[in-house]
Amino acid sequence: MALSVSTGRPVDLRVELVDEVLDRVARSLQTVLLPDTVVRKRRSVGARTDRDTWVRVERRSLEKITTQGWNGTECAAHVRGVAQPQWHGCVVWRDPGGTAMWRADETGLLPGAPAGNAVLSEAPGLPDEWWEALNASLDALAAHETKRIATPDTDTITQDLVTKTIRRVFSGDFDTTVQRWVPAHADLNWANVTAPVFSLFDWEDWGNAPQGLDAASLWASSLAVPALADRVRRERRRDFGSRDGKLMTLFVCAKILGPYAHPEDSRLEPARRMAEQAVEELQAG
Rank of each mutant, 00 (worst) to 15 (best):
E204A: 15
E204N: 11
E204C: 09
E204K: 13
W206N: 09
W206E: 08
G207W: 05
N208M: 13
N208W: 01
N208R: 15
N208Q: 14
A209G: 07
A209C: 13
A209Q: 09
A209R: 10
P210G: 14
L213N: 03
L213M: 11
D214Y: 11
A215N: 10
A215M: 10
A216V: 00
A216W: 08
A216I: 01
A216N: 09
S217V: 00
S217Q: 12
S217M: 11
S217H: 11
L218N: 05
L218K: 01
L218Y: 07
W219N: 12
W219P: 03
W219C: 13
A220M: 09
S221P: 03
S222M: 07
L223C: 07
A224R: 15
A224W: 07
A224D: 07
A224P: 00
A224V: 05
A224H: 12
A224Y: 00
P226R: 13
P226Q: 13
P226K: 13
A227G: 09
A227D: 15
L228S: 06
L228R: 13
A229R: 02
A229F: 01
D230R: 15
D230S: 15
D230C: 06
R231Q: 14
V232H: 04
R233F: 02
R234Y: 00
E235L: 02
R236E: 05
R236T: 13
R237N: 04
R237H: 09
R238N: 08
D239L: 02
F240M: 06
G241R: 11
G241W: 07
R243Y: 07
R243E: 00
R243D: 00
D244H: 14
D244M: 12
D244L: 10
K246E: 09
L247D: 01
M248F: 02
M248D: 01
T249R: 14
L250F: 03
L250Y: 05
